[in-house]
Amino acid sequence: MANVFVPDGRSIASVGIVRSLGEKGIDVTLGNERRVSAAAFSKYVKNNIVYPSPEKSPELFTSEMYNLIKKEKYDVVMPVRDSTTILFSKMKDRLSDYTKLHIPDYFTLMKGRNKAETVKAALDSGIPCPLTYFNGDGNIKKLKDTIEYPVLIRPCESSGSRGIVYVGSPEELVNEYYKIKNEFGEVMIQEYIPHTGKAYNVSALFNQYSEPRAVFAMEKIRQFPISGGPTAFAESIKGDNIKKYALKLLKDMNWVGVAEVEFIFDERDKKPKLLEINPRFWNPLSLAIHSGVDFPSLLYEMALNGDVEPVNSYQLGVKWRYYIYDVLCFIYSSNKVNRIPEFATFHNVHDAILSFRDPGPAFGSLLDGFSSLVSKERREHVFKRG
Rank of each mutant, 00 (worst) to 15 (best):
K271F: 06
P272T: 14
P272M: 13
K273N: 03
K273F: 00
L274Q: 11
L275Q: 14
L275M: 15
L275W: 08
L275G: 08
I277N: 11
I277D: 05
I277K: 11
N278Q: 05
N278C: 10
N278I: 09
N278H: 07
P279D: 14
R280W: 09
R280N: 06
R280V: 08
R280T: 10
R280E: 04
F281K: 07
W282G: 14
W282Q: 06
N283W: 02
N283Y: 04
N283P: 04
N283L: 02
P284Q: 06
P284R: 06
P284F: 01
P284S: 11
L285I: 09
L285C: 06
L285R: 14
S286R: 15
S286T: 15
S286E: 06
L287F: 01
L287A: 08
L287W: 03
L287T: 01
A288Q: 10
A288L: 12
I289D: 02
I289A: 02
I289G: 06
I289H: 07
I289T: 15
H290R: 15
H290D: 13
H290E: 15
S291H: 02
S291F: 03
S291I: 03
G292E: 04
G292A: 13
V293H: 00
V293S: 01
V293C: 00
D294W: 11
D294G: 05
D294Q: 12
F295S: 12
F295M: 08
P296T: 01
P296N: 08
S297Q: 10
S297H: 13
S297P: 11
S297Y: 15
S297L: 07
L298V: 04
L298K: 14
L298R: 11
L298Q: 02
L298T: 04
L298F: 09
L298M: 15
L298E: 00
L298C: 01
L299S: 09
L299Q: 09
L299H: 09
L299F: 10
L299R: 11
Y300D: 02
Y300A: 05
Y300M: 04
E301H: 15
E301T: 15
E301L: 07
E301R: 12
E301N: 15
E301Y: 07
M302D: 00
M302H: 00
M302R: 08
A303C: 14
L304A: 04
L304G: 07
L304T: 08
L304V: 13
L304C: 05
N305A: 01
N305C: 02
N305Q: 00
N305M: 05
G306N: 05
G306E: 10
D307R: 12
D307K: 09
D307A: 07
D307N: 07
D307H: 02
V308M: 08
V308K: 14
V308R: 12
E309G: 03
E309F: 00
P310E: 00
P310C: 12
P310H: 04
P310T: 05
V311H: 04
V311L: 03
V311W: 03
V311E: 00
N312Q: 10
N312P: 01
N312A: 04
N312H: 12
S313R: 10
S313K: 13
S313D: 01
S313G: 01
S313H: 12
S313T: 13
S313Y: 03
S313E: 11
Y314T: 13
Y314C: 07
Y314R: 08
Y314N: 01
Y314E: 00
Y314A: 06
Y314F: 14
Y314Q: 01
Q315V: 15
Q315C: 13
Q315Y: 05
Q315A: 02
